[in-house]
Structures are given as C-alpha cells and as structure tokens.
Amino acid sequence: MTAPPFDPATSRRVPETRQPLRSLLGVLLLIAIIWQLPHGRTLLYPLSLLATCAHELGHGVTALLLGAHFESFVLHADGSGLALWRGTPGRLGSALIAAGGLLAPSIAGSLLLVLSRWPRLARMLLGLIGGSLVLVVAMWTRNLFGIAFLLCAALFFVLAAVWLNERGAIFVLRLIAAVLCLSWLQDVDYMFSASASIGGLRHASDTAIMAQALWLPYWFWGGVVATLSLAILALGLWFAVRAQRC
C-alpha cells in the first residue's frame, strides 16, 4: 500500500481524501486570479469563448425544455454571443430562459468537477464534449467565427481524448470545469447592468429581461444569480470530494 504524501507544515501524512479538494480549490483559485488581471481575459481567451458558448446554449436548452424553439446562436470574436429562440413561454418562462444562460456554465462546470473524480470517465467525457460541439455547429451555429472556433475546439477535445492519459484528461476536464464555474466573475458587470454590447449592438441584459418579466430590479436578479452560482459551485465541490471518498 502506498503511503499518503507527507505535509512538512504539520509533520503528518496528508489523507488521500483531502488531496482532491486541495487540487480543485487550487485550479479554481488560479482561474479566479487570472481573470482579475488586466489582461486575464485575453490569457484565457479560448476558455472564455467556451464559457460564452455554454451561456448561449443555456438559453437555448432552457427554451427547448419550456416548449419554445431554439433558432440559432452566434459567437463573436470579442467574446460576446447571442442566442435566438422563438415561442410564447409566458413571463416566468422568459425569465427562466434568461436565467438559464447565466446559470448554465456553473451547472455544467460543477457537473464536470463531479465526473472528473472517476479517471476512467475522463477521456470518454472529452470525446463526448468534442462530439457535442460538432452537433452544436451543425444544428445552431450561424456565424463563420463561431463555426470555426467550435470546430477547432471539438478537434482539440477529440485529440485530447485519444492522446492524453487519464491524469492529463482529468487536468483538462478540471480546467474547463473551473472556467465554467467561475465564468460569472467575468460577467459581473453584465449581470448588474441593464444592457450590453453584443456584436456591436446594444441588447437588454439577461437580468434586465428577468426584471421586465418579474418586476423586481435587474440588480436584484444579478445578486440572485451570483448567489446561486456560488451555491452551485460549492455543491459541485462537495459532491466531487464526496465521490472520491466513496
């Protein structure tokens, strides 16, 4: 039996069940710090685009779940995106579709954190992500930049699934999960604004749409979304560590 690693600070062995939590927190902290740097968003540019993709798909999938039709989405080089849907889900449904985009990255990221605890799943998940991106391009992506980026991202994930070992695959999954879980940090201004520039045009923010449907001010819904995002991250971390212990 292999002994757990030695912690010089306490002169004790570190229990193996504590290692996943430290590793996950380290990746999350690193991403959070980089995003606060002056050029942090540029350093994480491809990952930021993936977070935008998850955001827009969150709108579309929520619309589908509520009986509406997901028309298309575009992904712009400046990191913005726009999802188009059609239907009459009502005031509450419209608010839920707006919230779906804001919360989808956190939900997807937390799910990846949990699933990354099983090494045998890691490479399969990378391949699944790559295949899903190809499907997204075929069904909904409607601009050249979005198509090119998502196809390149799909190729990366497929090649990673084929070439990486289990440890490398887990690292990639955790990196993607951390970016998705914390992507709301780069959208704080957006969540607490009434409008935003998307593709050079002004559009109502998601929280403003929620405010129009549910009457309370947009900054209130921005606070609700930020709180829920943190709660989803905490829940994902708890399940990830608990899964390792089991």
Rank of each mutant, 00 (worst) to 15 (best):
F6I: 12
P8D: 04
S11A: 11
V14L: 15
P20S: 07
S23C: 07
S23K: 12
L25K: 10
L37A: 14
R41T: 14
L49D: 00
L50F: 08
T52G: 05
E56T: 07
T62C: 06
L65R: 10
S72L: 09
F73S: 06
L75W: 08
H76I: 00
S80E: 01
G87R: 03
T88M: 02
R91K: 14
R91F: 04
L96V: 09
A98D: 12
A98P: 12
G101W: 03
L102A: 13
S106V: 03
A108V: 13
A108F: 14
L113Y: 02
P119S: 07
A122L: 03
A122N: 13
V134S: 07
V134H: 08
V136H: 07
W140V: 14
W140I: 10
W140L: 15
F145A: 09
G146Q: 04
A153C: 07
L159F: 03
L164W: 05
N165F: 00
E166W: 09
R167V: 11
G168L: 11
A169M: 13
L173Y: 07
C181A: 14
C181W: 01
S195R: 15
S197Q: 14
S197N: 13
G199A: 06
S205W: 08
T207L: 12
A213L: 06
L214E: 02
Y218N: 05
W219C: 05
L235W: 14
G236W: 00
W238S: 13
V241K: 04
A243Q: 13
Q244C: 11
